[in-house]
Design a protein around this nucleic acid. Structure first.
Lengths: 347, 347
DNA sequence: CCAGTAAGAGAAAACCTTTTCCCAGCTAAG
DNA sequence: CTTAGCTGGGAAAAGGTTTTCTCTTACTGG
């Protein structure tokens, strides 16, 4: 009669607790208690109700539960770098930690737009998220949104936090130490540093650690070369480092893997072998670059997945009511050794 | 008295419609109607209620609204490639489209684990998502989860769909045509094809289009070289193509940008200039690679952001009750011209 | 046989909002 | 003056679950 031949699927109604109770011949109260292991009733009744629920495919409506419990088992993940190289592993770690604990994640990309940010935060609050994690692509930049005085706990990861919030960042000084000490232990003596622009806080943190390690070990310090984060800059920097009259470096600590790649390419073009003549180390351990480089690039990994995981777990504990001291927690980096720095045995 | 000096923030209670109604001296029913532009009342009453709500910072509880409306303004985004190169722009497009329409996105990474997948789908259903979008990193692989016969509409994007579902994929044949025709129009005559492994469906689709275009234009067809998606393979392929006695190609259509980069590097090492001696074109338009290549790489862009956006909008229309025909929709690609193929004027 | 207690199960409130229905009071037409 | 119709606003149900409270029945000990 009706035009039922159109492909308009009619979706079956979800089965409710009421349905289960009716089928099992008990009240909804009893049914609820049976399924939640609450209250007192004969084992027989409990099992009968459970069996009915199973048979009907009953699944409790989370909305109703959340409304009552005032807890949604959902958190908001705010970022201004959806889909960037850094926030990706970070988000992966965060969402793993949360999902493992039965918490779902709302993904919100706020770009650089404060209005968009406010909108998202409001929407998340309206949906009664249990907490919020803010992440970014730069440690030294704020998200364009104010997360102070919210009704829920907030954690910052890899982004500039509010003054007395809890934040997780990578320890860039530690990473730089790892890199330079690695070069030193392998016997390289004149270690240069080619890195990104001065506008990044990490550039200064790493440069300082670089100087510290050189001085501690009695090696000559040359001023870091600041430029951009690109391969092209790595290329250029090699020209600067190897054209000059003064003593040329025998190793280069690069601010990221792209620079390192540019450096290696430029060295090859001048007939200098890596790691035969010059040792090169990168930063970020961006695998797709580090592994495609010839030779594969030794690099510093910021452990972003672990950092994200830590942030997620901390938020969960906060949501659970456990207090935590505000402040910035710096997590150590990790060296990933491939072939671009040579090997102790190569002496 | 109590140990109030511990940093345990006490979060203020949200203000409810009841609070607003009480403050304004009306019933909750009237308050609701005032705020939603429903019902009849004096303009004065309506404005008074609104002002009260504004003053109290009232925000309706989405949970309660969703429960009542049976619609949560939330959709689930399922992927087995969180944080991969393809799903990223895809997800970006999807979430933009949804967020623009006031819909929030649950992000779920199912890896390759069917149990995890089922868990996520169940959780999403429990939270009463309005719909689900499934994305993947390969057009020719299923997500490890069954999305047939769900209570909500499902859209597939860049992943193998269920038989009679709605899916969006890129038109790989179209992309390959664009690439090969571009090379042809620029005057290259002996066009080779270096691509990925035979296990990928796109490899065959593109190879066929490559052959078709060559034949249509009376150019000699050489068998595509199948390998891996890596720079290293690009390198190797150049050896195969240029060491042989028979006529050497004057242009290479590469299966992705990494291969293209390997090809260009290898050509340079043999003293062949790009685009002076050989034209090279990539696929994927992975900007960070394409732009860092010397010379910058002309490449085919699969328009994944647009594809995601389309998928998001279609899901929304489905959720809104509009029927849509099942089937696979192939979206065209786009050529991004940089410098690796030369230029008509260079003739 | 009676009081006291425990077990088993249901009724109802609570979470918060939306919507339908209804009521009281008033005006205009007959 | 009656009837119909309109106006402003409230009561109550609905949505699905959890939890507290209450009630009935049966059993135990004296």
């Amino acid at each position: 009669m009706a035009s039922d031949d159109l492909p308009v699927p009619v979706f079956s109604k979800p089965v409710t607790l009421r349905d289960v109770a009716a089928q099992a011949g008990v009240s909804v109260a009893t049914a609820s208690k049976a399924l939640n292991d609450q209250g007192r009733m004969t084992a027989e009744t409990r099992e009968r109700i459970r069996e009915t629920a199973r048979r009907l495919g009953f699944r409790p409506n989370s909305l109703a539960q959340s409304l009552l419990r005032r807890r949604s088992f959902t958190v908001g993940l705010l970022t201004n770098d959806t889909y960037g190289r850094f926030s990706l592993p970070l988000m992966s770690g965060i969402s793993d930690a949360l999902v493992d604990n039965g918490v779902s994640v709302f993904l919100c990309n706020v770009e650089e737009d404060p209005r968009l940010g406010q909108m998202h935060v409001d929407a998340m609050l309206d949906k009664r998220v249990d907490g919020i994690i803010a992440t970014g692509k730069r440690i030294d930049r704020h998200l364009p949104v104010d997360l102070g005085n919210l009704r829920v706990p907030v954690i910052y990861a890899f982004t500039q936090p509010d003054p007395d919030a809890i934040a997780f960042v990578s320890d860039d000084a530690d990473g730089a130490r790892l890199a330079v000490e690695h070069l030193f232990w392998l016997g390289w003596k004149r270690i240069a540093h080619v890195t990104g622009p001065a506008s990044f806080a990490v550039v200064h943190a790493r440069a300082q650690a670089y100087r510290d390690v050189l001085i501690e070990n009695g090696l000559p310090v040359t001023e870091p070369l600041l430029g951009s984060w690109s391969e092209a800059w790595g290329h250029q920097a090699v020209a600067q480092l190897f054209d000059r009259k003064s003593e040329r470096p025998d190793a280069v600590f690069c601010g990221n893997d792209q620079i390192a790649r540019g450096v290696i390419d430029a060295l090859r073009e001048r007939g200098l072998g890596v790691p035969g003549d010059v040792g090169v180390i990168g930063f970020d351990n961006w695998e797709i670059v580090a592994e495609a480089t010839r030779p594969p690039l030794t690099s510093v990994d910021m452990n972003l997945v672990a950092l994200g995981r830590e942030a997620g777990l901390t938020l969960l504990s906060l949501v659970g009511g456990k207090p935590a001291a505000p402040g910035i927690r710096k997590l150590p980096c990790r060296l990933v050794v491939r072939q671009s720095c040579g090997h102790p045995l190569d002496g």
